[in-house]
């Protein structure tokens, strides 16, 4: 995938995007941003800074009040509803509030994401077991999601987002409820996905997962980009272990 010509264009491009929630909550103002293919980008900022809003705009759950958003070179405002659905199949989103169905089991919750893309039953099962193994949740596979701890639910939400090996993974506060050990598992999953080609945007307060990396970190402050650190490295350079060099 990363050898195609589209590779040179950013996967996500925002140009002067503003979002006002009715009646007058200004969540984002004039945000411009590019995310390259294969990149991992950290979005930080205090509570209410607009991180979740930014992610929702990218997967078209919310529409911008002003400005242009392009994903894979296509202007989101010009894609028809059916096209948006197709696009969402290629974007995995781990929501801050998980959006799991409590009465369905872990397996069923994750399977929903793959059934939507018409994967076969066998393939679905295999992939889910693989993911749960990575996240150390294998013993919870047949438990209703509602009976899991917050930290477990968070990992299930992440597994669902990762299930289709998405082109783009949006993770909203993915380690908010996790202890250091579980956080490491999640970071490992991100690394795996990124290595197999996924572009990842992570909104987080958790300094631990980005402080020692060279990935770009973008700090949002009251709807504006305030600082911009990191070296905008493509994924070929593995930055979770970059201090080795």
């Amino acid at each position: 995938m990363h050898t195609s010509t589209a590779d040179n264009k950013p996967l996500i491009e925002l140009v002067k995007v503003s979002k006002v929630y009715p009646p007058d909550v200004l969540a984002l103002e004039d945000v411009s941003l590019q995310v390259l293919r294969g990149e991992i980008l950290f979005l930080t900022g205090m509570s209410g800074a607009g991180k979740t809003t930014l992610l929702k705009l990218i997967c078209s759950i919310e529409t911008p009040t002003k400005g242009l958003i392009e994903v894979a070179g296509r202007d989101l405002s010009k894609i028809k509803p059916a096209g948006i659905q197709l696009m969402r199949q290629k974007i995995g989103v781990a929501y801050q509030d998980f959006k799991l169905i409590n009465k369905l089991t872990v397996m069923q919750n994750i399977a929903m994401a793959m059934e939507v893309t018409y994967k076969s039953k066998g393939e679905i099962k295999k992939r889910i077991m693989e993911l749960l193994d990575t996240l150390k949740l294998t013993d919870k596979v047949n438990k209703p999601a509602g009976e899991l701890s917050r930290g477990e639910q968070q990992r299930v939400a992440l597994a669902r987002a990762a299930a289709n090996s998405p082109t783009l993974l949006l993770a909203d506060e993915p380690t908010g409820n996790l202890d250091p050990a579980a956080t490491d598992l999640v970071v490992k999953l991100f690394k795996q996905l990124n290595e197999s080609g996924s572009t990842i945007v992570i909104a987080t307060h958790d300094e631990k997962i980005y402080e020692e990396t060279d990935y770009r970190v973008m700090d949002l402050h009251y709807g504006h980009i305030s600082t911009h650190t990191g070296k905008n490295k493509p994924r070929q350079i593995d930055l979770f272990e970059s201090h080795r060099a």
């Binding site: 059916a82 659905q85 197709l86 969402r88 199949q89 959006k99 169905i101 939507v116």
Partner: peptide
């Protein structure tokens, strides 16, 4: 309702 809403977020087609 909840399930249909999530299916929509997961990219389920309208026919699905």
């Amino acid at each position: 309702h909840e399930e249909l809403e999530i299916l929509r977020l997961l990219g389920a087609s309208s026919a699905y």
